[in-house]
């Protein structure tokens, strides 16, 4: 159900509509609609973003920097990076494998498989965390066995990684499947007829065609992996300096009324979001450009 996030081409289509009498609205309507839409945009999207940075710097740069280099903050940053570094490549491998199987072959139950891949998108993050507690927690299926072997998954780093993998599970597959579907398999067949083996076909023919979609999926997956809150919150146990990711660290600081520090860490995450959006816009631009060249 990531329908809303897929790659879409920009291009200047406005002129197409504004230059034709039949599709042009009166100026008063145009500007009223723009005004209303932008007010809505500003109230709900722009102002919260600005608020993060304003609140973060409210007590000055020194407090801001101090909040970021404080040991608990540093370990939260590290843990967030670890979770993303594990989750993203795993879901990348999965996404490519799933898209290859689904788009290059016909088999029974394909539609069901696509729906199941989408499943994590529709599961509440809190439930996502809960399921791992039920499997690996002290009272869970493997709880006693894990305790017997002194392995900790819940309230420890592995649980956080697992929850992160779950919530970011469909991102890359969801991006690649429609893209590879649209490209068909003629080029791959041509490569095979010309004597290329499977790996050569993927590397020289498929990959160059899907690279922008792949990157797009990876950045969205990464943003969600670093920012996940609900699922991670359930399995983390909130042990400062050990099992706190950045979003959880923000929550603790906020609940302790250390607003400036909370917003300082939050501002790092907001910066990450802005970088994500910038890269995403750039990738979209590249993809459109590549499309213009090839069509």
């Amino acid at each position: 159900m990531a329908g809303a996030t897929s790659l879409h081409a920009g291009g200047d289509v406005a002129a197409r509509f504004e230059n034709r009498a039949a599709t042009r609205e009166p100026a008063w309507f145009k500007w009223m609609l723009i005004a209303v839409s932008l007010t809505f945009f500003a109230l709900f999207l722009l102002m919260p973003l600005i608020a993060v940075f304003v609140e973060a710097l409210r007590k000055g740069w020194d407090t801001y920097l101090a909040a970021l280099i404080e040991p608990d903050a540093v370990s939260a940053i590290k843990l967030t990076l670890i979770a993303a570094v594990i989750a993203v490549p795993l879901n990348l491998t999965f996404g490519v494998a799933a898209a290859w199987a689904i788009t290059k072959f016909n088999f029974r139950g394909k539609h069901l498989l696509i729906t199941l891949i989408d499943l994590p998108f529709s599961v509440s993050p809190v439930v996502a965390g809960l399921i791992y507690v039920l499997v690996f927690g002290a009272q869970g299926w493997f709880g006693p066995w894990l305790q017997g072997h002194d392995v900790k998954i819940i309230f420890a780093v592995p649980g956080i990684v697992l929850a992160t993998i779950f919530v970011t599970f469909p991102f890359i597959a969801r991006e690649l499947i429609p893209l590879m579907q649209a490209q068909g398999k003629e080029e791959e067949e041509a490569a095979v007829v010309l004597g290329a083996n499977g790996w050569q076909t993927f590397w020289y023919v498929t990959l160059p065609n899907i690279k922008w979609g792949l990157m797009y999926g990876v950045i969205l997956c990464n943003a969600r992996a670093m920012g996940e809150f609900g699922a991670v919150s359930v399995v983390s146990g909130h042990i400062r300096g050990l099992t706190n990711t950045m979003p959880l660290h923000v929550e603790i600081l906020y609940n302790e009324y250390q607003f400036a520090a909370a917003f300082a860490v939050a501002s790092l995450l907001a910066l990450l979001a802005l970088v994500t959006l910038a890269v995403k816009t750039w990738v979209e631009y590249q993809a459109t450009k590549a499309k213009d060249v090839t069509e």
Binding site: A4, L45, G227, E228, P247, L269, L274
Partner: peptide
């Protein structure tokens, strides 16, 4: 910026 809610961590 429309996609901000996708990219901005929910806690933030």
């Amino acid at each position: 910026l429309i996609d901000l809610p996708f990219a901005l961590p929910t806690a933030v």
